[in-house]
């Protein structure tokens, strides 16, 4: 097992193909994202519970089902209790949403930090906070990204 070179030609091809696939997946994912204009939104005026001044919404999904939709202006700590001791607490404060605490083992969701309308395009997980152990997905949405029937 003697290797003179750091990488072989085959290695370079492998790395290049992986990089190209990653780019491909990135742009494929981008094309999957629904555009605001195509989503059939509720118009802000149609929903009596909505304030026209609302800047964003926090969508909480548990086990792939809509759990709660909260306005970004409604500050507070919102517990998500699933039984069996699974509790996540989502905090909305000063235009930012974060996972305040979680009973999960890895605490990844807590470490993912705050999402704001300003930083959500530059975070690694974009607008989302994900807790895989407890199957909780928290997303910060702009008003035009909210689908009909999801309004709080």
């Amino acid at each position: 097992m003697h290797m003179k070179k750091f990488v072989s030609k085959t290695d370079v091809v492998i790395i290049a193909l992986c990089l190209i696939s990653a780019l491909g997946i990135f742009f494929y994912a981008k094309s999957l994202m629904p555009k605001a204009s195509e989503m059939g939104n509720t118009h802000l005026a149609d929903s009596p519970t909505l304030k026209a001044s609302e800047t964003g919404y926090v969508r909480i999904q548990v086990d792939n089902r809509l759990y709660r939709m909260l306005p970004l202006s409604g500050e507070g700590a919102f517990p998500i209790a699933q039984g069996k001791g699974k509790i996540n607490v989502v905090e909305i404060k000063d235009g930012a949403v974060r996972m305040l605490s979680s009973t999960c083992k890895n605490q990844n969701c807590v470490h993912q930090g705050k999402v704001t309308l300003e930083n959500r395009d530059t975070r690694p997980l974009f607008n989302a906070i994900v807790c895989l152990p407890n199957q909780v997905l928290v997303e910060l949405l702009a008003p035009d990204e909210v689908r009909a029937g999801e309004m709080p």
Binding site: C18, S21, A22, L23, I25, F26, Y28, A29, K30, L32, M33, Q61, N64, P124, L125, F126, N127, A128, V130, L132, Q135, L137, E139
Partner: peptide
């Protein structure tokens, strides 16, 4: 979780 965000994230992880 069925969310497109994670498909993005897969590209980063790759």
């Amino acid at each position: 979780l069925q969310t497109g965000v994670l498909v993005y994230y897969l590209a980063i992880l790759m």
